[in-house]
C-alpha cells in the first residue's frame, strides 16, 4: 500500500466523481441518475480514506461513516420520491416530467 502514491488514489476518486457527474447530467432514467449520485458520494469516501491514511489522521475515516449514513437516508428519500412520481405518471424518465417548464 505504501508503495502506491497518494495521487493515484485521488486521481481514481476524481475519475469516479467525473463518471458520476456525467451520469447525472447525461442519463434520463431516474434510477440511473440515482446510482450516479451514489458513485459521486463513494468517490468522496475514497478520497477521504486515502487522505486519512496518508495523513495518519482518523477524522477523515470518521467522516466517511457519516457520509455513508447520510447517503442511506438520501436514497430512502430519493426512492420514495421516484415511487410517488411513478404512481402519478407511470414514468421514471426525468425528461418526461416537465409540467413546470414555461
Amino acid at each position: 500500500m505504501n508503495n502506491i502514491p497518494l495521487e493515484y488514489y485521488i486521481a481514481l476518486s476524481g475519475i469516479l466523481f467525473t463518471i458520476g457527474t456525467l451520469g447525472v447530467i447525461l442519463r434520463r432514467n431516474a434510477i440511473i441518475v440515482f446510482m450516479s449520485l451514489e458513485i459521486m458520494l463513494n468517490s468522496v469516501n475514497l478520497a477521504f480514506i486515502s487522505f486519512a491514511r496518508y495523513l495518519g489522521d482518523t477524522s477523515g475515516e470518521i467522516f466517511v461513516f457519516f457520509v455513508m449514513a447520510v447517503a442511506a437516508a438520501e436514497s430512502a428519500i430519493g426512492l420514495a420520491i421516484i415511487l410517488a412520481l411513478f404512481r402519478k405518471k407511470q414514468t421514471i424518465y426525468v425528461d418526461e416530467v416537465n409540467v413546470l417548464k414555461h
Binding site: 449520485l37 459521486m40 458520494l41 468522496v44 478520497a47 477523515g60 426525468v94 416537465n98
Partner: peptide
Amino acid sequence: EASLKYFILGAFATGFLIFGFA
C-alpha cells in the same frame, strides 16, 4: 416534480460540496 428536481440537483450539489470538503 418540484421534489424530484430538487432532490436530484440538491444531491448533486452535495456531491460537489463534500468532494470539496475532502
